[in-house]
């Protein structure tokens, strides 16, 4: 008898469980799944949001562009949700393109990044790119060229080491981290809509606490990449009288502090392979020329960034153990301008 009672209780419990919970049920074909999101600002007032949404139909797959305007990003998202015929599921967004004019105001950009990071729908793994172009142009270009395969836009930024060493990807959480980091600034890739290809890589914008300091060229991007411990493998360099390809590279940094003056000596070792050369050019000359070129490029960039107190190479990261934590706060202002870097390139023939 007692067991029977317990059993009835069990049934009541089970049914209460089943009574609750019907809020997240929405079949996948009843959801719109945007893949690329563009954010821009019009007339310095309204946010404009552009979404690229593939529409899976059985035979011909098409996709479309949806835009919305509003006071805040959140309100635009809500507005798009209301106006869309299906439920909009933001969990698959792979790329967020931000128009540069929005980035003019560092506070707004910071808020935007914080919002994207805090939002439960939008994954913080989504890539971020800046553009000079009209965001809508970029997105419609992606739409025209890729259509439903827009997920492959992710591959554009992640071609993998050994293919295109200049391009790199930055995700939302990396930008978010750089907003707070004492010792490291970040470079965000800048793209334009291409004519034949989907996107055109235009270098990177250096972001310091949400403020765009300057733009660097693809060549310099690649140098920054080397310091971010990415391989330089696969890079093709043209020296005028010869062109070479880097087959392997490694970098070693040594840090030291003398009288409160930070010093870094870095050694970049390159293994190169000569693709073509003019007659009579020796290996030695090519090597020397390459070393000189790379070092020059580096020192130029370092000087520029030291002037603007943005630690794009992340040298400060390596002083975490040498400078006490509360002094690290002043890394950008006090230490970084005084930083001395001995950058040496050693090129070797394969």
């Amino acid at each position: 008898m007692r067991n029977n009672k317990l059993f009835k209780l069990l049934i009541v419990f089970m049914s209460t469980i089943l009574l609750c919970g019907c809020w997240d049920i929405k079949d996948i074909n009843k959801r719109s799944i945007p893949l690329v999101m563009g954010i821009s600002k019009e007339d310095d007032e309204e946010y404009k949001l552009t979404l690229q949404i593939p529409i899976p139909k059985n035979d011909d797959q098409i996709s479309r562009i949806v835009t919305g305007r509003g006071e805040t990003v959140a309100s635009v998202l809500g507005q798009i949700r209301t106006n869309s015929e299906d439920a909009v599921d933001f969990s698959q967004i792979r790329l967020i393109v931000i128009q540069k004019n929005l980035a003019k105001n560092p506070q707004e950009l910071r808020d935007l990044i914080k919002f994207l990071m805090g939002s439960e729908d939008i994954p913080s793994r989504a890539l971020v790119a800046l553009t000079d172009d009209d965001v809508e142009n970029v997105l419609s270009n992606i739409n025209d060229k890729l259509g439903v395969h827009a997920s492959s836009i992710y591959d554009y930024f992640n071609k993998g080491a050994g293919w295109v060493p200049e391009i790199f990807s930055i995700t939302i959480w990396e930008v978010y981290r750089s907003l707070y980091s004492y010792t490291k600034d970040i470079a965000v890739p800048v793209v334009r809509s291409g004519k034949d290809t989907v996107l055109k890589f235009k270098g990177a914008a250096i972001l310091k606490k949400g403020k765009i300091i300057e733009t660097i060229s693809p060549d310099e991007c690649q140098l920054v990449n080397v310091f971010r411990n990415n391989n330089e493998k696969g890079r093709i360099e043209s020296l005028g009288f010869a062109s070479i390809i880097v087959t392997n590279s490694s970098i070693k940094n040594k840090t030291s502090m003398k009288n409160n003056k930070p010093t870094v000596s870095s050694n970049l070792r390159l293994k190169i392979y000569i693709l073509e050369r003019k007659e009579g050019i020796t290996n030695k000359r090519i090597r020397k020329e390459l070393e000189k070129l790379t070092e020059k490029r580096f020192y130029r960039l370092l000087k520029r960034t030291q002037g603007s107190q943005t630690d794009i190479f992340g040298f400060g990261q390596q002083f975490h153990q040498q400078i006490s934590y509360h002094e690290l706060k002043d890394w950008r202002n006090d230490y970084y301008p005084k930083l001395k870097v001995n950058f040496q390139v050693h090129a070797n023939m394969e």
């Binding site: 793994r125 978010y176 981290r177 980091s181 004492y182």
Partner: peptide, 21 residues
């Protein structure tokens, strides 16, 4: 993943760390 400076601003640091992977 985030560094001490950013980590204190997050509500669920471990969750966000997992989300970044």
């Amino acid at each position: 993943i985030f560094g001490q400076e950013a980590v204190v601003t997050l509500t669920n640091p471990f969750l966000e760390a997992m989300d970044s992977v």
